[in-house]
């Protein structure tokens, strides 16, 4: 059976400008990629979810990973970096420096890592909206 190949949409969002801008903006600031492609409600919901998850992780005394000596720590640093500016601002303010000592702090650490991973998904979604792969 013949299938129709996926064609990019030909809306105005897929015609001009730097195509990776929503991807980069969405990574740096949660929801910003969706704002750039005019998806305000989606952007607000994504920003609220990701920023709240990151902030609650810190409030639960979660750790912001800095060490890259252990392979598992490297993966967690990669996850944390997904939060973009939130991670760098947190590091500059000296947040999340303590080693994890309680169960709740471990949950908080996972909240922070997962917030970064979710932000990467959101940024890729903004890129797909920009290229017309998704509507």
């Amino acid at each position: 059976m013949a299938t129709t190949p996926n064609k990019p949409a030909t809306g105005k969002s897929s015609q001009k400008g730097f195509v990776y801008l929503p991807l980069i903006a969405g990574w740096l600031v949660p929801g910003a990629g969706h704002f750039l492609v005019g998806k305000w409600v989606r952007g607000l919901l994504l920003a609220a979810s990701i920023i709240a998850m990151f902030a609650l992780g810190l409030a639960m005394q979660g750790k912001l990973y800095t060490s890259t000596q252990d392979i598992l720590d490297m993966l967690c640093v990669a996850g944390d970096l997904g939060s973009g500016l939130l991670y760098f601002v947190g590091r500059m303010l000296g947040l999340g420096p303590d080693p994890v000592q309680t169960t709740l702090a471990d949950y908080g650490t996972k909240f922070i890592v997962v917030a970064g991973l979710l932000n990467v998904i959101a940024a890729v979604d903004a890129h797909n909206l920009r290229t017309g792969r998704k509507s």
């Binding site: 979810s49 709240a52 998850m53 639960m60 169960t103 709740l104 949950y107 998904i121």
Partner: peptide, 24 residues
């Protein structure tokens, strides 16, 4: 410091992750 119960942590995690999954 924010001290939710373990179940409240599950609810919060599920809420935020589901929101992002649903939208994307």
């Amino acid at each position: 410091m924010f001290r939710p119960s373990h179940f409240a942590s599950v609810i919060l995690f599920a809420l935020f992750a589901s929101t992002v999954f649903g939208i994307t």
